[in-house]
């Protein structure tokens, strides 16, 4: 799993050169690397994402992946759509992400010692607005805030050890987390 994430993050940088060449055409490559805070009712957590795709005029579309450590660590993989509102170098923008996510729950995030928990991650959705600030050449700083939703199902099996147990049905907790995602990012286009 760690290798996959590292590969996805590096992918964003690898596309830099491609993006520079692509700028000569109306449709060109765009890579975003962003990180920030996920704040909700529970303790705030760190999140990081990379989104790679194509940009056409003020509109872009891409595929993203990241690490979302809010309550249960998950790996969202999503489609990202975004649009600049102005044609100027500095512009507000809106965006929306949606897709599945994969569980990568840390031990300390799992249910207590009397349970044998299993996790299944579900839908991930993120939508918000931001402001992009031109830095130099085709490099932009982006600041954004979004409504971010993720769903996780937790199945709790009562731990049964000494001899095999009677068949049991787990308690299933269906979590829905609605957070504010505040991100700062670096965009190459």
């Amino acid at each position: 799993m760690k290798k996959i994430i590292a590969s996805l993050l590096l992918l964003g940088f690898a596309y830099n050169a491609t993006a520079q060449n692509a700028l000569k055409t109306p449709m060109h490559f765009q890579s975003i690397l962003q990180a920030g805070l996920l704040a909700g009712k529970t303790e705030p957590s760190f999140g990081v994402q990379t989104i790679n795709g194509v940009r056409w005029k003020q509109i872009s579309a891409g595929i993203g992946a990241g690490i979302d450590n809010y309550v249960f660590r998950t790996i969202p993989v999503f489609i990202d759509l975004r649009a600049d509102i102005l044609k100027s170098k500095n512009s507000p923008f809106v965006f929306a992400d949606a897709g599945p996510q994969f569980q990568w729950v840390q031990d300390h995030q799992k249910a207590g010692s009397f349970f044998n928990p299993e996790y299944k991650s579900g839908f991930y959705f993120n939508a918000g607005a931001g402001y992009s600030i031109y830095l130099f050449k085709r490099n932009t700083l982006t600041l954004s805030a979004a409504f971010s939703l993720k769903k996780v199902n937790e199945s709790l099996y009562t731990y049964c050890d000494f001899v095999a147990c009677p068949e049991q049905k787990p308690t299933i907790n269906k979590y829905t987390f609605r957070r504010l995602a505040v991100m700062a990012g670096w965009t190459i286009w």
Partner: peptide, 21 residues
Amino acid sequence: SFLLIIILFAGCFKDDCKSIH
């Protein structure tokens, strides 16, 4: 405007959990 939107939607930022028993 951006800040205003965050404030308006602050009530939406919550966690919930439904449990099947």
